[in-house]
Design a protein around this nucleic acid. Structure first.
Length: 659
DNA sequence: TTAGGGTTAG
């Protein structure tokens, strides 16, 4: 009794601190104290535990009361520490490790804690192994969390093994286990296998439907997600806010605002409570679909915004070209994280402000935020665009320091692209060769960069290597391959691959593939074949294609053909300065000065403005920008005489008309 | 005798 009194004293003093969270306790202790054991009182307290400090106090009581061997009590303690968001998984493990024979509930709690937490899902898998070796049999509560850990760890073989365990233990008929197996397949991007499993579930729960709809959404299969949603309604399982979040996410990816607005209407009709996550999903959908007014309205109407609400609107502004609004909103953000910084940095990259990308990168670090993989990839892309290899190399070093075992594949791909675009093709290929888990993107980047740097033969060799390894190419692969053929003047090989693209790989040619072929044929002087190919295109030719044809006319001095082309083109694209300049050059090189004067007049009359093209050059680690006839530099008086001398030398070396 | 699965931003 004295122990109970001591406990009451402590609990009583504690109650003062937590009066609002524990109102029934006074009644519990004063009226019914005699009918409860000290163990039951502890269980009551553990169920209402509110913090780790509180839990540690209760743990002390367990020790004082001599209940340290009571597995049921300790199980509740471990469960709070491992699973609750206010818990501490290390404390749970500490208690667990001192128990001679932990029971299944304890194992399940720790596995669940590890699978949810930031400590890494591999700990969950290790704990499952320990569970098996301890002779404790898993049950239907164990498997869902180990499967979740498998999905994060990308361990498909382990999830298959677990499926086998589930069958052996006879627990695969539980809908939660079935849902977990399905979600693991979705995580491995095996959407059609997940669907087969989904169809086999007899008693589908709301989570089953949401998992499969979410799976389609993540895979970008918008129509499948909506078809399943229709079936869900027929099966009389009512959607909840999570169903709608997945559907909106699918609409965002597909940039389908009509479908998105229908979902919005449906949410309002069904009366589902729009929580913060659902509001954020609506905001994101409107922002990505270009409906800035609606996105702003939802943002304003959201009473308690989180960092995702703010970042979504910053992204919406950036994607719609409102870089100033994005910057202003970012400045007002009450809380930021790495993603919000990345969002703003990407905004500047997307809008071509590469210098600003680099200064924001510095600012991000000065503000105490650690750049992550996405930050580094974005900044590397800016380095590639302006040829700033000095910063690119610094990022490479930083990435290697923070990823000691292996670079994440997306980061390795960005590095390959950066080195290649900065002209360090050998370094780019070294990294490409070193990367263990190359994906199709890695191959495409390496091939595309080799092609652009004029290493056509090497790019084609890389494609042959890909084919030999059985890696299925995509449309981007063929853009690189055809560019390689074009830049190396390999007309027959270009024709061969263009034909195989459809006949062997079932990839229908897109406009960029036609552009490569027309460029290849045009450069080779096969203007008629190039024009015939334009005629067979299933889509309208764009400025790139017409530009290629005009460029070919210029190289091969087909001034008259160029004039006919341009006449048609100016009707289609009246404000294209690039086309007008091309024709103007074409006339001047053919010595047709009167025609050249006319085209310049047309440009003036219709208000075609020639955009200034900015170039960048890196000298001693500093990047300088310049444009044609740029006199801004204080070194201009020294630069231009050297440039004139270089031009004179070039004129002597290169055949006339090509400069 | 305790408990579980699905969702939003770069």
């Amino acid at each position: 009794m004295s122990v109970i009194l001591r406990l009451l004293t402590v609990v009583g003093s504690h109650r003062k601190c937590h009066a609002t969270t524990l109102p029934p306790l006074t009644f519990f202790f004063t009226r019914q104290l005699q009918s409860f054991s000290s163990q039951e009182i502890l269980h009551y307290r553990l169920q209402r535990c509110s913090s780790m400090a509180h839990l540690k106090l209760l743990h002390a009581h367990i020790v004082v009361l001599g209940l340290s061997q009571e597995n049921f009590t300790l199980g509740k303690l471990i469960s709070f520490a491992a699973v609750d968001e206010r818990g501490d998984i290390d404390y749970a493990a500490l208690v667990f490790n001192r128990i001679p024979q932990p029971n299944r509930f304890m194992f399940n709690s720790l596995i669940r804690g590890y699978s949810n937490g930031s400590r890494g899902p591999s700990e969950a898998i290790a704990m499952y192994r320990e569970m098996l070796s301890s002779g404790v049999s898993p049950n239907e509560f164990t498997l869902p969390f180990v499967l979740k850990a498998c999905a994060v760890e990308s361990s498909h073989w382990l999830s298959t093994l677990l499926h086998g365990h589930g069958i052996k233990l006879g627990i695969c008929s539980h809908v939660c286990v079935q849902n977990a197996l399905m979600n693991a397949l979705i995580g491995f991007r095996m959407t059609s296998d997940a669907r087969k499993l989904f169809d086999e579930i007899d008693e589908k729960s709301l989570v089953s439907w949401n998992s499969m709809i979410g799976g389609y959404s993540r895979a970008g299969q918008t129509m499948e997600a909506f078809n399943l949603f229709r079936r869900m309604k027929d099966s009389r399982v009512g959607p909840d806010e999570i169903t709608f979040v997945s559907l909106l996410s699918a609409c965002s990816q597909a940039r389908d605002s009509d479908l998105g607005m229908l979902v919005h209407l449906f949410i309002e009709m069904t009366g589902v409570q729009a929580d913060l996550i659902l509001r954020n999903a609506l905001l994101d959908m409107y922002g990505k679909c270009g409906h800035l007014d609606s996105a702003e309205k939802i943002f304003r109407q959201t009473p308690e915004k989180n960092v995702i609400s703010w970042t979504s609107l910053v992204t919406a502004y950036a994607r719609n070209g409102c870089i100033k609004s994005a910057r202003e909103l970012f400045a007002q953000m009450p809380i930021r994280n790495a993603v919000s910084w990345n969002s703003l940095i990407s905004a500047y990259l997307q809008n071509g402000h590469f210098g600003e990308v680099l200064s924001l990168f510095e600012e991000m670090q000065d503000s105490g935020f650690i750049p992550d993989e996405a930050t580094l990839a974005t900044v590397l892309s800016a380095c590639a665009q302006i040829g700033d290899m000095a910063i690119g190399k610094r990022i490479h070093a930083y990435a290697c320091e923070t990823n000691l075992i292996a670079l994440p594949i997306a980061l390795a791909n960005s590095l390959i692209a950066m080195y290649a675009k900065c002209g360090e093709v050998a370094t780019a290929l070294d990294i490409f060769r070193e990367v263990q888990c190359k994906n199709l993107v890695s191959w495409n980047i390496a091939m595309g960069c080799l092609a652009l740097q004029g290493c056509g033969a090497e790019a084609i060799e890389l494609f042959r290597e890909m084919e030999a390894l059985g890696i299925q190419p995509d449309g981007i692969t063929f853009t690189g391959l055809l560019t390689a053929c074009s830049h190396s003047g390999l007309i027959n090989l270009g024709r061969y691959y263009f034909e195989r693209m459809m006949s062997v790989h079932s990839i229908p040619p897109e406009i960029e593939h036609y552009a490569c072929m027309i460029d290849l044929l045009g450069r080779g002087g096969l203007l008629e074949e190039a024009i015939m190919l334009v005629g067979t295109m299933p889509m309208r030719a764009d400025i790139v294609i017409w530009g290629s044809l005009l460029g070919a006319c210029r190289i091969h001095k087909f001034a008259e053909m160029g004039r006919v082309l341009l006449k048609q083109l100016l009707e289609l694209l009246p404000h294209s300065s690039g086309l007008c300049v091309l024709l103007s050059n074409l006339y001047s090189e053919a010595g047709r000065w009167e025609d050249r004067r006319k085209i310049r007049k047309i440009m003036n009359d219709i208000g075609v403005a020639k955009c200034d093209a900015i170039s960048y050059i890196e000298i001693d680690g500093l990047v300088y920008e310049f444009m044609v006839d740029d006199r801004r530099s204080r070194w201009s008086n020294s630069i231009y005489p050297v440039l004139d001398r270089l031009t004179d030398h070039l004129k002597l070396e290169v055949p006339s008309g090509t400069l």
